[in-house]
């Protein structure tokens, strides 16, 4: 019973967040400059313009326009384009590229940041530690798209090691898929790598002072085993929370990187929809992005519970 109530409150909270986010977006898109009707049909007559506005709900108040979109969603086609066609198929084809971009970035960031954070904590104050933190800090202070452009031009176009831009589905050509993803993923990963390394380093330094680490050491087991079996896990909750929180940044970054590297993902679609003032489509894209954000957060929550039993006890 209690469990059921728990799930219900969780679900209703999720629904509330989604509605809040999309409602906010529905207000924001209407602040975009220019007459939408003219943008859609530059030679429209006054009557035609009114008709377009009516179709977009622009003659209604914010709330009732929002309800229009909501009813489209609930019908299952995720909104319709003004020029005709349903939004759902577009989302379906755009989502894999975006998710891959984000997923690979998180994996790469963790794979690099975990050993780097653990080692620089273990070698605290040494040249290795200082070099790591300075270089990560300076790399991370560049804006994302700047790194992206440099990589695309230098590594991609000039050196020709990997293709500078484009996208190929994973099922089509595995190696080409990863070659194309390399630069955008690298670009996106720089920020998270710096953040994760710094966080993990601080946590590991604190954990290394714990009695249980000294006890493990006094058993005569190797440093490597101590670091990765005894220290990493109790030090990783902050890292995981931060990985979940950085999802928002990462999604935002991915949307921009898609445009630079010409990846047909949600970001590209979103930019297109903003350009053509497809209000309902924009709201649907935002809703989908928010859904993935929330799913990821709850996955991380349960991961943290699995990794650290102390968080389980805390609830009791």
């Amino acid at each position: 019973m209690k469990k059921l109530i728990n799930i219900l409150t969780r679900l209703s909270r999720v629904a509330l967040i989604l509605m809040g986010a999309t409602f906010l977006v529905s207000i924001l898109v209407r602040q975009l400059p220019g007459d939408v009707a003219l943008l859609i049909n530059p030679v429209a007559s006054a009557a035609e313009r009114d008709a377009i506005r009516h179709e977009l709900g622009l003659d209604r108040n914010y709330f009732s326009a929002y309800l229009m979109w909501l009813s489209q969603i609930l019908r299952g086609d995720f909104g319709i384009f003004i020029f005709g066609g349903k939004v759902f198929p577009v989302i379906k084809s755009a989502i894999p590229a975006t998710l891959q971009l984000i997923f690979y970035t998180q994996i790469l960031a963790l794979v690099i940041a975990i050993p780097l954070g653990v080692l620089s904590a273990f070698k605290q104050g040494t040249r290795f530690d200082k070099l790591t933190s300075t270089s990560l800090f300076s790399l991370a202070s560049f804006p994302n798209f700047g790194i992206g452009l440099i990589l695309a031009v230098v590594v991609g176009a000039n050196l020709g090691i990997v293709p500078p831009s484009g996208y190929i589905r994973i099922t089509e050509d595995l190696s080409q898929h990863f070659k194309l993803m390399l630069l955008p993923v690298l670009t996106l990963a720089v920020g998270p790598i710096a953040t994760y390394t710094r966080l993990l380093r601080a946590e590991v330094i604190a954990t290394l002072r714990e009695d249980y680490v000294l006890l493990a050491k006094s058993k005569g087991i190797s440093d490597k085993r101590i670091l990765f079996r005894h220290v990493l896990r109790p030090s990783s909750t902050t890292l995981m929370t931060s990985a979940a929180l950085s999802m928002g940044n990462l999604i935002g970054g991915a949307l921009i990187i898609e445009i630079i590297f010409v990846i047909p993902g949600l970001g590209t679609q979103l930019a297109k929809a903003i350009g053509t003032r497809e209000f309902f489509a924009i709201q649907s894209y935002v809703a989908i992005i928010a859904v993935f954000f929330l799913i990821f957060n709850s996955v991380v929550d349960s991961l943290i519970n699995a990794v650290d039993p102390r968080t389980r006890n805390r609830r009791a």
Partner: peptide, 29 residues
Amino acid sequence: WGTGMAMIFQDPLTSLNPVRRIGSQLTEG
């Protein structure tokens, strides 16, 4: 360490790893 000399610490609340099961901490050595 462990085989020649071993050590027990003052505070049993902090000398065991909170995120590892007793069994794995005991069998490790």
